[in-house]
């Protein structure tokens, strides 16, 4: 298969970037999208040119490192997977593919297609955990947890922090990411203890970092590689409302 690639090139965070066009030939349909970029890069190095930089690591859809916006969709045209799991059989032979980095004020471009997602770490640091320290915890089975709740919590916890939700949201909102973490803990007795403090701190940090506001377009859910549901956003709104209306300032 042959493809024409239009790729965003940007030397560093301060440089002004631009699109450049590349051609790749004889790509197998079983080749993954990132392997196709590897082939392009090998080719560029052979021609004594600079390769294209993009983030990637585990290449099995779990680390959340890969972050390409392909033909208007984060992680490309296939549903429910990351770009590293997507294969070229999803594209028509001879087609043009436009590859852009995640675009958001909170995710500045580092180089080419690499962006800085440390804003997500900062949101987690604001409260995305249970504040237990190592040791001195009760037996794992001391608190039974309804299977349905544990499963819902796991659904939310499956988030890989890739940022596709922010990338696809027309408002560059991080609500799906934040609500997934809030939900995971709000559903478990271990997380409930500090739920009020957590939701307020995480929302405040999210706002501070320049993410947009949610307008319920649900694009995030449609593009999430782990199919995280927007019901988590509703749950977070509920938690937030409860925390604000609660008598005591948390």
């Amino acid at each position: 298969m042959d493809f024409t690639l239009k790729i965003w090139k940007q030397a560093n965070s301060k440089a002004k970037g631009k699109f450049e066009t590349f051609k790749v030939k004889d790509i197998s349909a079983d080749c993954s999208f990132l392997e196709m970029l590897d082939i392009l890069n090998e080719d560029l190095i052979d021609k004594v040119q600079l390769p294209i930089n993009f983030d990637h690591d585990c290449r099995e859809g779990i680390c959340g490192m890969c972050s390409l916006y392909i033909n208007g969709r984060p992680h490309g045209p296939d549903q429910g997977i990351t770009v590293c799991q997507m294969h070229m059989r999803n594209f028509k032979n001879g087609s043009k593919i436009v590859i852009e980095p995640w675009r958001s004020k909170a995710f500045p471009v580092i180089k080419d297609l690499m962006v800085d997602r440390s804003a997500f770490d900062e949101i987690i640091q604001a409260g995305g955990y249970v504040s237990v320290t190592t040791g001195g915890v009760p037996d794992a089975n001391s608190i039974p947890i309804r299977k349905e709740l544990a499963d819902l919590s796991m659904d939310a916890a499956a988030c890989i922090g890739c940022g596709a939700c922010v990338a696809t949201c027309k408002n560059a909102s991080a609500m799906l990411f934040v609500s997934a973490k809030v939900s995971q803990f709000a559903l478990l007795p271990q997380g409930k203890v500090e739920a009020k403090r957590r939701v307020q701190a995480m929302v405040a940090k999210m706002d501070e970092l320049g993410f947009g506001n949610c307008t319920n377009t649900y694009a995030c859910e449609a593009e999430c590689p782990k199919n995280i549901s927007v019901s988590n956003i509703a749950r977070m709104n509920r938690e937030f409302l409860g925390a604000k209306l609660g008598a005591q300032k948390a």
Binding site: G72, R73, K105, A219
Partner: peptide
């Protein structure tokens, strides 16, 4: 206010705009 903040949250726009299958009116 929400809309202005939302525009500011993405200072650089995409070349190919969002193709996501979501509610058309919501956009």
């Amino acid at each position: 206010i929400l809309q202005i903040q939302n525009w500011l949250a993405r200072p650089k726009r995409y070349k190919v705009e969002g193709y996501s299958h979501t509610s058309f009116f919501s956009k």
